[in-house]
Design a protein around this nucleic acid. Sequence first.
RNA 1: GCACCGGUGGCGAAGUGGCUAACGCGCUGGUCUGCAAAACCAGUAUUCGCGGGUUCAAUUCCCGCCCGGUGCUCCA
Length: 493
Amino acid sequence: MTIRLYNTLSNAIEELQPSDGEALRIYACGPTVYDYGHIGNFRTFLHVDLLRRTLELFGTKVKHVMNITDVDDKIIRNAAAANIPIGEYTPRFEKAFFEDLDALSVEHPEVIARATEHIDEMVKLIQCLAEQDLAYKTEDGSWYFRIAGFPAYGKLSKKDFSGITDGARVDVDEYDKDSARDFALWKAPKPGEYHWQTPLGPGRPGWHIECSAMAMEYLGDNFDLHAGGEDLMFPHHENEIAQSESATHKPFARHWFHVRFLLVEGRKMSKSEGNFYTLRDLLLKGYKASAIRFLLTSVPYRQQLNFTFEGLGAETGAVERLRTFYQRLKNTQWPENCNATAIQEAASTAKGKFLAALANDLNTAEARAAIFDLVRTVNAAADAGSLCRSSVAAVLDTLADFDRIFTVLEDNDSHWTRFALEWAEKEGRLDEASPEVRAQISLSDSQIDALIEERNQARRTRNFARADAIRKELLEKGILLEDSKEGVRWKRK
RNA sequence: GCACCGGUGGCGAAGUGGCUAACGCGCUGGUCUGCAAAACCAGUAUUCGCGGGUUCAAUUCCCGCCCGGUGCUCCA
C-alpha cells in the first residue's frame, strides 16, 4: 500500500514513495536541548513516529535523520547562568529527551546529528553562498543570507515577499543588514561568548543553517520529506529552502510534513497560562505513558488536538480496554473447531479499514475506530461462545498491525512511572509526584500477589467482609482486582 | 491589523452534497457476579457556531458575522 500525505509545499495530498526506489529519506527537526520536552513537542515527534511506522508497515524502508540543536541563544544563556560550558549543559537534556521518546515508544531515527559536530559542513555551505553573493558579512562579523537573491522565497509558507527590495533597511543601525528580512547564517560572538574559529571568522551558526547542512550531509541535496511542527514552516523551513536551493540549484525536500499545534484545556499551552506540561509532569501526576501516547496520536496530525486531563483519563480507559481484550484473546483456551468465517472476515475488514485510514493522510482517528469496531464484535462473539482458535488467530494478526503503529498493547507503564519517580527523587522534585502514584509504586508485585492469595482464602471460606476489605485496600493503592473464571487478574489503575 | 486553519452529542473527535452523522470516554437501564471488576446488550446529537445564499437536496459548496488557533518575532 502507498501512503497519501498532505504536502505543505504543493498544498495537495500526494503519494509518498522513495524517489530513489530504495528508502524514503526523511529529515525531521529535532529538539533544542535546553530544557525538558513538553507534550506539544512530543505530539510532533509522535506523528513523525506514526509516519515512519506506517511506511515501515507498508514495506517502505526509511532513512530518518533528526538533528539535535545543541547550540543556540537559550542554551548559551542557560549555560552561562549555570556557569558551565554549553558542552556540559546540553547532554543531560539530550539524554532526557531520548528517555522521554522511549517512554512514549517513539522509534529512534537512523541518524542523530548534533549541530556542534557539523560546524565544518555549515561553514562550507555559507562559503558556497558567499561565492554566489547570496551571503554577506556585516560589520560586526556576522553573515546573512540575501533574500533578494532567492526569488522563490515564500513558496512554502505562501507568503509574498516581492515587495522587498534591496536597501529597504529597517534595523540599519543595529545589524547593518541589507534587508530586514535577511536572516543570520553565522553569528559573531558577543564578548566572552562561546564561539568557533572558522574561515568565516569567529562565531556560531545561525539557527537555520544546521538543518540545511546536516540534511544534505546525510540525505543528499534533495530528499523525500522534511518534517516539523507547524510553527517551523516560517521562517525556519522557508529559510532552509532558500539556503539549500541557492547553494545546490536543486530542489531541497520534495514533501513537507507539518504537525499542527495542540491546545491544552482549550488554550494555547504556555507557561504564563499555567497549562504547560512536560512528559515528566504528567507521569508524576500518575498518568500512564501509553495513555499519553494514545491521546497525542488520537487526532490526525493536521488537526488541532485539545489536550485535556479528562481526555487523558478517557484514553487511559481506552488503552485498558484494548489490553483487557488482547489478554483475553491470548490467555483463554479457545476451542479448536468452530465456524470461524464471520470473525475472520471481521478481522480482515478491520485490518483493511485500518490500513486504508493510515494510507489516507494518516487518519489515526479512523484507523482506531476500525480496531474498536473489531473489539466489540469479537468480545460479543467470545461472550456468545462462538470464538475458536483460527478466528482468534485472525484477530491477533490484525491487532499486531494495529500495535506496530500505536504500541499500547504491551504494558510498560509502571516501568516509566517508576522511572519518573526515581528521576524526581534525584532532582529533589519528589514533592511534585501525586500521593497516589507513590502509593501505587510502593507495593511490589509479590506483596500484591500475597494479598490476593489471602483474599482468595477468605473467599473460599465465604468470609466476604475480609475479602472485600483487602480488595478495597488494594484499590486505594491503585491496584484493581478482577475475578474471572481463569483466576484473579490485577492491574495498576 | 493582514494571511491561513478550525468550530459536529456531556468531553475528545471522524466523516459526507442525499443511506440509521463513525469511534473512544462518560452517563442510564439490563445480563453476568457472593458483591464488584471485566465483557456484552439496549438507550443516550430530529442534528453538525450564528445569519443569509446556491441546489430538487447542505453539517458538507459560497458570502457575512461571532468564537478558538496559528503565522507575520524565539517556539514542536
